[in-house]
Simulated scan of single mutants.
Amino acid sequence: MTKKGNQFERYSRQIFIEEIGLEGQRKIMNAKVLVIGAGGLGSPVIQYLSAAGVGTIGVVDFDEVELHNLNRQVIHNEHSVGISKVESAGEFVKNLNHQVSFIKHHVKIDTSNAEELISDYGIMVDGSDNFTTRYLVNDTCVKLEKPLVYGSILGFSGQVAVFNIHGSKNLRDIFPEPPSDENLPDCDSLGVLGALPGIVGSMMANVALNIITDLPVPVNKLTLIDTFNWNFQTIDF
């Protein structure tokens, strides 16, 4: 068998972890994860889930790659500018791990398609950049009883949480109603240092892998990341 096809060798450093082992790797390879967004947070999530060997990764994004994305959206490159993010993400995954089944959803997730998209996957990872999508994904996961890994970033700050897993709380238990998107600060207006989404997205990917392999996850807790003061805090909700 060639090195390209040697699964044990490829994933050996995960398999060697006592809490994962062969059985955990099988769970990873049988998992179906939907990533909402192939941008700043979605990029490291897609990168590390595909590297870990997640069997099926679906990505929902309707945007095209733009030059200003490249300081943080590391799965895309200069040759990706002008093409859809899901196409660029698919090319990245194909080059990294041909064993992953990559499903492109080049659509905007909204009330007309959210249930259909989410129902096909076991775990959702939300890297969207607006409150309308975040609450839609949250509410749909609650309705369909699907676990959700949540993350957000702005400037030097980020958040990570797990919602709706084994009956746990969800986004509305922290913030019952979404704020208006009008006049809210975002990365387009205030910017973001490229490494921050790498940190937060990597944490999201790690949590997703813990869910897949039945390892502990932070339930009913919100992790706050402050890279300006280098402070990490977890609060209960």
Rank of each mutant, 00 (worst) to 15 (best):
M1G: 15
F8Y: 11
E9K: 12
S12M: 02
Q25M: 02
K32Q: 11
I36D: 02
I36S: 06
L41N: 10
S43K: 05
V45L: 08
A52C: 00
I57Q: 09
D63I: 02
E66L: 03
I75A: 03
N77L: 08
S80P: 01
G82L: 08
K85V: 06
E91D: 10
E91C: 06
E91P: 02
F92A: 09
N97V: 07
N97R: 15
F102V: 08
F102D: 04
H105C: 11
N113P: 10
A114Y: 02
M124P: 00
M124E: 00
D129S: 13
D129M: 05
T132F: 07
K143D: 03
L144A: 04
P147E: 09
V149G: 05
G155A: 02
F156V: 07
S157F: 14
A161H: 09
F163Q: 07
F163C: 00
F163N: 03
I165S: 07
H166I: 04
N170P: 03
L171E: 00
P176V: 02
S180H: 10
P185V: 11
D188F: 05
D188N: 15
L190N: 10
G191W: 10
A195F: 14
I199W: 08
V200I: 15
M203D: 01
A205D: 06
A205F: 10
N220D: 15
T223G: 07
D226Q: 08
F228W: 13
N231M: 09
T234D: 05
I235E: 04
D236V: 12
